[in-house]
Design a binder for these strands. Structure first.
Length: 257
DNA sequence: ATGTCGTTTAGCAAACGA
């Protein structure tokens, strides 16, 4: 089973790129983030024509998350986190598919730091940590995936010293990430590639992709029962080089059936 | 400080978020 997460940065603006990647990569379950479209403007039909069921939680202009499946019915279990500090923001969608619980999330960016946006990021992170603990306690197989807007370690940033004050790499943010992971989650990309530099995002500015000045901020966290089923975890860098593409690129894992 | 996108509209240029 191939599972992917992709921050598309505008699902309508990226539709040709998204459809091309779906046809080429053939993922079974996909989490999308940054739809930047209200519910009524989500392009469900072309996605369905590729054989996917799809659910989405949109929002005008910003945020927005979706879940796609071509391996069975999507049973939505929640949208939004319990006690979300700002329920108007569409950042979390969760569904049971084929016996696994999938959560697709778009954690707040949080810049500038300090400030109210950074406070909101940390508050959202706390809600996620609480909810993730409950998911673990359920004993179900769970995949948490999406754009976490966190570089966990110095291996995940092209110039760590420049990012120390940024909301994506600040001590508070990384501490929250490790509190989450240490509940018992497995960082799938890092587990398969313990020592490699891995990036999933490259800024549009200053030719960052060509210089490989990237960040690893799109992640998969696996519950304990899924850890032993992990066969592969990779970044698909090719779509980042396409015309009119997102600043993120798809990341995927393969789980044994 | 700056760079570049997608999206929206007190609207076709400018603001915002990233």
């Amino acid at each position: 089973m191939k599972i992917a997460t992709y921050n598309v940065n505008g699902v309508n603006g990226r539709l040709p790129v998204l459809l091309r990647w779906l046809e080429q990569a053939q993922p079974d379950v996909v989490a999308l983030q940054e739809l930047k479209a209200p519910d009524e403007k989500f392009p469900a039909e072309p996605i369905r024509q590729l054989g996917y069921e799809v659910i989405w939680h949109g929002q005008s202009r910003w945020n927005g998350v979706a879940m796609l499946s071509r391996i069975g019915e999507i049973h939505e279990t929640r949208r939004g986190l319990p006690g979300d500090p700002d329920p108007a923001q569409s950042r979390y969608i969760e569904a049971a598919i084929n016996g696994i619980l999938f959560a697709g999330l778009y954690l707040p960016n949080g810049n500038p730091r300090p400030g109210p946006k950074f406070d909101y990021k940390l508050a959202w992170f706390e809600r996620l940590i609480e909810h993730a603990a409950q998911l673990l306690a359920s004993g179900l197989p769970v995949v948490l995936m999406g754009d976490f807007n966190v570089m966990p370690t110095e291996l995940d940033v092209y110039k760590p010293e420049r990012w120390l004050d940024d909301a994506l790499f600040a001590p508070e943010t990384r501490a929250a990430w490790f509190r989450l992971v240490e509940q018992g989650w497995t960082d799938a990309l890092r587990a398969m590639h313990p020592d490699e530099t891995i990036y999933t995002f490259w800024d549009y500015f200053r030719n960052a992709f060509a210089r490989d000045a990237g960040l690893r901020i799109d992640h998969f966290l696996l519950s304990p029962s899924l850890k032993d089923r992990l066969l592969a975890a990779e970044v698909d860098r090719e779509p980042r080089g396409w015309e009119k593409t997102s600043d993120h690129t798809p990341v995927w894992i393969e789980l044994a059936d």
